[in-house]
């Protein structure tokens, strides 16, 4: 069970592209109000499953599982790892409903809610990671690598979710164009290694969006 009792507002402000400006009191008031509304409807749910892995020339194969993780980037990500953990998580349908409602009656609120919800799902991911760590205490783990990063095809999304049976177990599925529904959801792969892993976090070099990135434009990055 994961419970969120607050949302990282600093992170939300960054999504609102205003890390450099201090918001006035009316916007801060709105952010606090939106946080309350979201916390009422957020229901964090997650699933994970660990697999022993073997590397092939151009993919990583999971044992007793139909999913094949293809591409150089995932191979690199899982280099030296014995296991890969697939996990998925969502903060649920109620958030989408709230967002739809706000977009009709109050666009500013919708924008703020959207950013807060994005921050919330990241917080939940951090919690899931902690849970995975404690389930596998003898392993070092990599950062979260998601379908669509680098050359790991996003088209894996449906099978990824199917392996975890996520539609039935936590109400998370993908559309035909591989978008996750509910919208504030994440799928990711964490490698488990018996030796320390070198790269601690994601960097811009394997990001497909580096060119269009608003954070980079302002001299920053998303991590």
């Amino acid at each position: 069970m994961i419970n969120l009792d607050k949302i990282d507002k600093k992170e939300a402000l960054r999504y609102l592209q205003c890390s450099n400006i201090s918001p006035d009191s009316s916007i801060m008031g709105l952010i606090n109000e939106c946080e309350k509304k979201l916390l009422k409807v957020i229901e964090p749910r997650y699933l994970y499953s660990a697999f022993d892995i073997t590397h092939t020339e151009n993919s990583v194969i999971l044992e007793n599982c139909t999913l094949e993780l293809t591409g150089n980037d995932i191979r690199k990500h899982l280099k030296d790892c014995k296991k890969a953990v697939l996990f998925c998580t969502t903060i649920s349908n109620g958030v989408d409903k709230l967002l739809r409602f706000a977009q009709i009656s109050n666009m500013t609120e919708a924008l703020v809610l959207d950013s807060l919800a994005s921050a919330a799902i990241e917080q939940v991911c951090d919690e899931v990671e902690k849970i995975i760590h404690s389930a596998y205490p003898n392993f070092y783990s990599t950062w979260r690598f998601s379908p669509g990063y680098g050359d790991l095809p996003i088209t894996l999304q449906a099978e990824f979710l199917n392996v975890l049976n996520s539609s039935k177990r936590i109400g998370l599925s993908a559309t035909s164009s591989f978008m996750l529904t509910p919208s504030k959801s994440v799928t990711a792969i964490i490698g488990l290694s018996e030796t320390p892993v070198a790269q601690k976090s994601r960097n811009c070099s394997e990001c497909n969006l580096a060119k269009a990135c608003v954070y980079r434009k302002n001299g920053g990055h998303c991590n």
């Binding site: 539609s167 599925s173 559309t175």
Partner: peptide, 14 residues
Amino acid sequence: IGPIGQLLEPTGSL
């Protein structure tokens, strides 16, 4: 017969 496996409108696109 179980669920289709994709979310229906409005949250999904089916």
